[in-house]
Amino acid sequence: MTESLDATLSPTEFLDHRSPVVREFVDRALAGTGAATDTDRAVALYYAVRDGIRYEVYDADLSRRGLTASRVIERGAGFCVHKSIVYAAALRAVGVPSRIVYADVRNHLASPRLRELVGGDVFRFHSLTSVHLGGTWLKATPVFNKLLCRLYGIKPLDFDGRTDSLYHPYDEQGRRHMEFLTLRGEFDDVPYSLVTDGIRQAHPLLFASTDRTAAGSLVTEAITVEGS
């Protein structure tokens, strides 16, 4: 039976790909790339999200408005949950089906302060994006931008539109980096209460308020550790 992809192309509250903000982001990302196929466009948009939206877990907005693709683009920053939403919305904007994926992961290279706020090295509801290309679903992770990867000694994740793009298990020095523990599922839209309540319950110290995470800077923390 042929899979119906209608729900994975539709605009939603969070994947608001018909908004002018998302459309402008997509047009800017594809300008001058010569992207002629779905795969070309999916790859170009991957890098636009990976390096054009700054990865930052601090001062992140987890309100309903804060988790819309248009708002994340306006802020220009967010962590995995936010960036996966932007990528999924951007894909739908060019007619490529997408879903949001959630999993629990162990991050061995988190900064000391982030480990304290998270309560260890296991992060609940890590997010990535599922992309439908060439008749199959691929997983892509447009999360850590180049600067952050360089500062933390992690190889940036690439995506070729043909194979999965997941976190490498080791960093450039051969140290353990990230491993997947539990796949929580794929969703046509953001299951808001499931995700936000789950993150708050698992990592209460990370939050400065109901909807916003604690203040700080991953770049500053990386530079401080590197210089100490």
Rank of each mutant, 00 (worst) to 15 (best):
M1N: 11
L5C: 12
D6P: 02
A7D: 15
T8A: 15
P11H: 07
T12H: 08
T12P: 03
F14D: 05
D16M: 11
H17S: 02
R18H: 14
P20A: 14
V22E: 08
R23A: 15
E24G: 13
D27R: 15
R28D: 14
A29T: 07
L30N: 12
L30K: 12
A31T: 11
A31L: 14
A31V: 03
G32S: 12
T33P: 12
T33W: 11
A36E: 15
A36S: 15
D38Y: 01
T39P: 00
D40I: 05
V43I: 15
A44F: 07
L45I: 09
L45G: 06
R50V: 03
R50G: 01
R54G: 00
Y55K: 03
E56M: 05
V57F: 11
Y58R: 06
D59P: 01
L62Y: 15
L62T: 05
S63R: 11
S63N: 05
R65T: 13
G66S: 09
S70H: 09
S70C: 10
V72D: 03
E74W: 04
R75M: 13
G76N: 10
A77I: 01
A77Q: 12
A77Y: 14
V81K: 00
V81Q: 14
K83F: 03
S84H: 04
A89N: 07
P97C: 04
P97W: 01
S98H: 05
V101N: 02
V105L: 13
R106Y: 05
R106I: 02
L109K: 15
S111E: 07
P112L: 10
R113Q: 13
E116W: 09
V118M: 10
V118R: 02
G119I: 10
G120V: 08
D121H: 08
V122L: 07
F123S: 02
R124T: 07
R124D: 10
S130T: 01
H132A: 04
G135I: 03
W137Y: 06
L138C: 08
L138R: 08
A140F: 01
P142D: 03
V143K: 01
V143Q: 05
V143G: 00
N145A: 01
L147P: 03
C149Q: 07
K155D: 11
T163P: 00
L166F: 06
Y170Q: 12
D171V: 07
R175I: 00
H177A: 14
F180H: 00
F180R: 00
L183I: 04
R184Q: 12
R184H: 10
E186F: 06
V190N: 02
S193N: 12
L194C: 01
I199Q: 09
H203R: 10
L205H: 13
L206Y: 05
L206I: 06
F207V: 03
F207L: 07
D211K: 04
R212Q: 08
T213P: 02
S217M: 09
L218I: 08
L218V: 05
E221H: 08
I223R: 14
I223S: 02
T224F: 05
V225I: 11
V225K: 09
E226N: 11
E226I: 00
S228Y: 04
